[in-house]
Simulated scan of single mutants.
Amino acid sequence: MIVVDPNFVRLMRRLRQQQGMSFRELASKAHFSHSYLWEIESGKKPPSMHLAKALDACLNAEGQLTRLVTTVADDQETEKRLRSAESGDGPDRDAEAWRTRPAWSAQTGGPAPVSASQWAQVATMLYDVFVRSRPPLMRLGPDRYTNPSLQQQNLTPFAAEATMQGRAPRVECRAVSRQQPPSDVAALLSLDLGDAVVLRENRYLADGEPVQLGHTYLPTRVVGTSTLATELDLGPGGTFAALERLGYRTARIREQVTTRFPTRDEAEALKLPPGVPVIVLLHASFDSDGFPFEATRYIMRSDAMAVQYVAKVAA
């Protein structure tokens, strides 16, 4: 949990004005969107620790802003909520009463207990109001592979675009193995029958919430015995930085987007409520010679992520 000193907003505004910077100029330097910086300075959103450090560097604040942002362990917040629930105060009290009300009514001769289907309808309504109304994390299409933050801050594409949108990114590599690829991936990578790949299975989180899964398929002739084939943690820059160190730089991409309902394993990994479909994006990277050296099948929560493409149209 992030705790922000009320003086953060005033200090940020004063430093920015002293430097004579507009929001767009500061956004360009800090690699955050100007609209997000405006929301921070106007007090509409709290800053992350990563943003505070970036602003300190851009505004020559020598750590003044960072010192006004404190990270508090989650277990302290959990303990606080438990104490509140035990004392009968706070939102947990109302939630507990709401959950137990049908049984209480039945015992006292009141209305019959609410059916499971009716509870599901109520849950769906609340989910629509409090979850779907939040802005989705935007996947920025081709721009994610040319973002200057990737080179300057050694960020993965996911981390760069999440950070620009004011979200705290985290990537978990859950497994690395050798596999026979699915037929569509084999065709995309121009593999021969029987060719194996290294499969890297990742889960992507924004603000601690799982929003995406990624199954990355790498031809064995590309990765050999490098860390891509053996290690869970690839260090700064992730998969694409490791591929660049092997001489494979993305010059062109191909992406196909479809939708479907998740498998049980996908729903559990993404903590999906019932009835929420997923966006499936099959991505492939090609070098300047047209050689396909990487393919990833991304499974995205349709209620938490969106895909954006901007392309030039010839006159």
Rank of each mutant, 00 (worst) to 15 (best):
D128W: 07
R99V: 00
P135Y: 10
A112R: 07
R139G: 09
T146M: 12
Q151A: 15
P181R: 11
L140I: 12
A85Q: 00
V122Y: 09
Q152E: 13
P91H: 11
R170Q: 06
N202D: 15
G141E: 00
L140S: 08
W104E: 15
L189R: 04
K80N: 05
A162E: 02
A175Y: 04
E86P: 07
A168W: 14
Y204E: 13
L193M: 14
A120H: 01
D128V: 11
E161C: 01
L140D: 04
R167F: 11
A160D: 05
S87F: 03
M138V: 15
Q152D: 05
V131A: 06
D195Y: 05
Q118D: 11
D94L: 15
Q121Y: 04
A95P: 04
R174S: 07
L140E: 13
N147A: 11
E201C: 06
F158K: 02
A168V: 14
E86W: 13
P111S: 10
K80R: 10
Q107M: 12
R134P: 10
D195R: 05
L82Q: 08
A85N: 05
N202E: 06
D192L: 07
Q179V: 05
M138D: 02
A160V: 04
S105P: 02
L140T: 12
P181F: 04
D94N: 11
E161L: 12
F130M: 04
S190T: 12
D192T: 05
Y204C: 02
A186L: 02
D143F: 14
A168H: 08
P135C: 02
A112L: 03
E96T: 14
L137C: 01
T108W: 07
R203G: 03
R101C: 02
A186Q: 00
Q151V: 14
W98Q: 13
R81Y: 13
Y127R: 12
A168N: 12
V131Y: 03
P181H: 08
T156S: 14
P135K: 04
P113K: 05
A106S: 06
R139Y: 11
T156L: 01
D128H: 11
S117L: 09
R203Y: 03
S183G: 12
A97L: 13
E86R: 12
P135N: 00
T100W: 02
Q118K: 12
P142C: 13
A97T: 06
P157K: 07
Q179H: 15
G109K: 07
G88M: 09
W98L: 13
P142W: 09
